[in-house]
Amino acid sequence: MSRPDDPVPILDALREDLDTGFAGLYDAYRVYVHTVALRATGSPADAEDLTAETFLRAYRSLISTRPPDLDTLQPRAWLLTIALNTLRNDRRTKARKPPPGPLDNAPDRCDPTQNPARAAEQNETARELAARLALLPERQREAVVLRHVLDLPIAEIAQVLGVPEGTAKSHVSRGLAALRVHHREAVNAAR
């Protein structure tokens, strides 16, 4: 997905009326937050919980006595940061959950009209890819999801992960390289 992130109308709507503006904020960023949540938890039910919790925390921050400054707020990075912080807090406070498994509800993508080798590559289904993504180290997975699933710029990824841009870039390229090795192996095995 690649949608230009223009937060100005969303922030204007929040200033105008917090609650209807918040519905607009949800609409604009729900896919970003839920995708990060789904790839981080590996479970549709946990991803729903985390998405709901993230937006509730965001709202509570906006109505708190020390709300974020809407003149400088970058809402997408802000929401994704809340999502990852919530995830890490949950992991700390709750009993540890097993790492994300291969099961999720990503649709299979397969085009039978392709030639066999090509089809093998396409048979690299979303489900399998999601499973391998889940096996990456946490930071690499988050970086790859933010960069290649959600198309965020490196500067914003660095902000969300709380690391320097060079580190963010390195997480992305290492994660992608690891996925690429598996990808080639899968394609070769299919040949």
């Binding site: 690649s2 729900r30 709901a52 999601a130 290649h148 699933v149 996925l179």
Partner: peptide, 16 residues
């Protein structure tokens, strides 16, 4: 690979 990754974005169900 990059195309397949881009396909992993997922909207939450309406009930969220």
């Amino acid at each position: 690979l990059e195309q397949a990754l881009a396909g992993l974005a997922a909207a939450p169900p309406a009930r969220v």
